[in-house]
């Protein structure tokens, strides 16, 4: 398991190659990457704040649950903080399992949980000013299916 919280950009291709190389014996690797999306009014910047210490702990617990539940060969999470521009990579998860169904399900589980259980907060700066992104009820509801 590899969990990283960092300000620096990362190379999604290099990370996926290295994760795949480490996932020896697994038949399936699934990855998801999240980018900064443009918004109405034009996004000038997104600032991501997090809770150092708790973030790493929460992500590790979430990934550990996924590894146990789907008998994953490996799991990877990288999530950035600091100031980002439209199109920049925010985060990435990857899962490795013997079969694709488990790898897909585990990746979705990781995404659902890290959206509303990992202590990150996004602030969007647009032409209309700066405001914190509100959590969606749908994100909380998404946890119920697990």
């Amino acid at each position: 398991m590899d969990i990283r919280v960092q300000e620096a950009a990362f190379d999604v291709g290099a990370e996926l190659n290295s994760f795949t190389a480490r996932a020896a014996g697994a038949g399936a690797v699934v990855s998801f990457s999240g980018l900064v999306r443009d918004v109405n009014g034009g996004l000038r910047a997104m600032t991501i704040e997090h809770y150092p210490g708790m973030t790493e702990k929460a992500l590790t617990e979430i990934a550990q649950q996924a590894v146990t539940r789907w008998a994953l060969a490996d799991a990877f999470v990288v999530h950035r903080y600091g100031q980002l521009k439209v199109g920049e990579l925010i985060m990435m998860v990857a899962t490795a399992a013997p079969h694709r169904a488990d790898a897909f399900a585990a990746a979705e589980f990781l995404m659902d949980y890290l959206k509303s259980r990992a202590p990150f907060w996004k602030k969007e700066e647009t032409g209309n000013g700066a405001d914190w992104v509100a959590a969606k009820d749908a994100d909380e509801d998404a946890l119920k299916r697990w």
Partner: peptide
């Protein structure tokens, strides 16, 4: 969060070192 673990508002503070208050999280 009490000592970096999500808690509810009735959580006891005895022995706690760090309490954090924040809005619902928006990771991912």
């Amino acid at each position: 969060a009490v000592d970096q673990t999500l808690a509810d508002f009735d959580a006891p503070l005895e022995g706690a070192r760090e309490i954090a208050f924040f809005p619902p999280m928006t990771g991912g």
